[in-house]
């Protein structure tokens, strides 16, 4: 079932310098798609357009069959949550509890339900022991988990992770990635925006953005096999594929090593 339909979407801040050009993209419910792109490829702009933080210059966005417009933007925001890059700049509450409550207060959820959900989702992201803590006593990874809980508590169907792991240390990044996986298994549609090819291994599908255009949109393994596209994307290929290409350019042909590296470059 379709949950997001983007048709011919274009956006620019200044006329003549397009940030996104003619983007057409469909996402199914329960899918995990990775949007891969270099810095400045327009990938974060796309996420802002999706929740109506920016307004498209051309094209349409439909979320759950509802077309995004000034009248529907508030309903659409109930369906999509975003975890942003900087953990510090999205923590609204004075404590963890207050921050998870923030979205619920906005949705005018009754207080009793609010208290239940805060407990429930704090437990889910493993932050139940930190409910009274203030943000400056938390690590980046913990703050991102609180942000996830805040979105889950609003019971949205789709979560966008907009470079949500890029400011975290390896431990923080790994917990957020495994959380994405768990949520996706439970039916949440995950859109992970990143420039790290390794993160794309987990998802079902990869969309490669370059200079504001989609240059590839296909199943994960199909994209990871497409050396030409990966070369063009200004991203770093996974190591096995890089080694494979280097070996090929040196004319080393060993079938066993070749097929092994090939397989690794699809599974990590």
């Amino acid at each position: 079932m379709r949950i997001i339909d983007i048709e011919n979407l274009s956006f620019h801040y200044r006329a003549g310098t397009p940030v996104l050009e003619d983007i057409t993209l469909h996402v199914d419910k329960g899918e995990w798609i990775t949007i891969l792109g270099h810095n400045g490829s327009g990938k974060s702009t796309l996420s802002k357009l999706l929740v109506g933080l920016l307004r498209a210059k051309k094209g349409t966005i439909k979320v759950g069959g509802l077309e995004l417009s000034e009248n529907t933007v508030y309903d659409i925001r109930k369906k999509i949550g975003i975890v942003f890059q900087n953990p510090d700049n999205q923590f609204v509450g004075v404590t963890v509890r207050d921050d998870i409550a923030f979205g619920l207060e906005n949705l005018q959820i009754p207080r009793d339900t609010m208290i239940e959900r805060i407990e429930q989702y704090a437990r889910k992201v493993d932050m139940a022991d930190y409910l009274n803590k203030e943000p400056h006593n938390l690590s980046g990874g913990q703050k991102q988990r609180v942000a996830i809980a805040g979105i889950l508590a609003m019971e949205t169907d789709i979560i966008i992770f907009d470079e949500a792991t890029s400011m975290l240390d390896p431990k923080g990044r790994n917990t957020i990635l495994s959380m994405m996986k768990q949520l996706n298994d439970e039916g949440v549609t995950v859109i992970n925006i990143t420039h790290d090819m390794k993160e794309s291994l987990y998802g079902d599908r990869i969309v490669v953005l370059k200079n504001g255009k989609i240059i590839k949109d296909d199943k994960t393994d199909a994209v990871l096999k497409d050396q030409e596209i990966l070369e063009k994307s200004n991203l770093e290929m996974l190591l096995p594929l890089r080694v494979l290409r280097l070996l090929e350019s040196e004319n080393v042909k060993d079938e066993k090593v070749r097929s092994y590296l090939w397989q690794l470059s699809l599974t990590g």
Binding site: H38, N39, Q85, S166, M167, H195, D196, M197, N234, L235, E236
Partner: peptide, 10 residues
């Protein structure tokens, strides 16, 4: 190099 994409980082 935090926050830079792979090409920028390298």
């Amino acid at each position: 190099t935090s926050g830079l994409d792979p090409l920028g980082r390298n």
